[in-house]
Structure formats: structure tokens, C-alpha cells
Amino acid sequence: MTAAAGAGHGDAEGVTRRDFLLIATGAFAAVGAAATAWPFIDQMNPDAAALALASIEVDISGVEQGQSIIVNWRGKPVVIRYRTEKEMQESKQVPLDDLKDPLARNDNLAPDAPATDVNRTIPGKEEWMVMIQVCTHLGCIPLGQQGEFGGWFCPCHGSQYDTAGRIRFGPAPENMYIPPYSFTTDTVIRVG
């Protein structure tokens, strides 16, 4: 160290004002670099048009029990299924301990709601399954009313869901998601 540093700016450990300036400048440059990088990263996130969350209204008056329709919501297929009594009975008899994913994954309920059959629908409309028909493994679209559990079967990697869209077998980690929806009338569902 120079005599000037020792005399004017240093302390016992020999830390000088120059050291402080170097660290401060470096830190400032690092923050600046990160702030400059952010727009280049964030531009890849969904843009304003994609975020403008569209909701759709679906007329379900023509759907008979045991039938499904698939509608497009935010680019994803949403299945609306009028479930049969048998399907609901089978689903209700499944003990919660048998489920791979114990959570309902229902945007209309609390996030920690258990995955009972009732919790996979909205109150009073248990016969209607409204579900994003996208496999929670790697995003394929499962085929309806197939597989060992009579629900959905994903042809990509063999995941199987039951009649309430809950994962029962295969690599998918979670139950298929229930989007926010409501009945505007008895025959019109609003998704989103």
C-alpha cells in the first residue's frame, strides 16, 4: 500500500477507499447488467394480447347424459362431460388414499381442497365435469372414456385418469385441472 493510502484512507486491515470504490462500481455494473438483461428475457413471456384472458360461453342444452363436448379455451381443449350415474358412483367409491394426487386442482375451490368426486365439480352440478383435457405429464390430450379406470387415457406416455379426471396410473403427477367456470343459466356454462 502506498503511504497516502495508509495515512489517509486505510484502516488496520489495509482496506482502502480504492477497494470500496472497486466493489461499489462492480456491484453497480452488475445491477445495471441485470436490469438491462431483463427486457430481453421478459419479452418472451405472454404478451398483452395473450394475457387478455378471454372467457367463453358454451350452450350445453344439446348434450345428453354420457356425452361430452370439447371447446377451445385459451388455446386449450376444455371437455364438458355430462357424466353417467355409473361414472359418478365409481368415482365416489374411490378411497382418497388410492389417489396419486390428493388435491382437487379445482380453480373454483380452495387450493388445498381434497380430490373428492364432489370437489372435482362445482356445488349442485356434480353431473357436469368441466376440465382442461391436457395431461399433466407432458401436455398431450388424453382420449376420453378409455383406460382401466373408464376415464381418460393419454396415448403419449400411458397415464390413466378416472371418471373424475384424477390421475390413477402412469407418469403424470397431478389430476387434470378444473378451470374457473360457472353456470350462467341451466344450459349455459361460462368458462374463464
Partner: peptide, 10 residues
């Protein structure tokens, strides 16, 4: 979502 720039591949 960041990779997609949306909610699905598009």
C-alpha cells in the same frame, strides 16, 4: 409459459 410466450405452444 415463458418458453411458449402463451398458455400453449402457439
Amino acid at each position: 409459459t415463458w418458453l411458449w410466450g402463451g398458455f400453449t405452444v402457439g
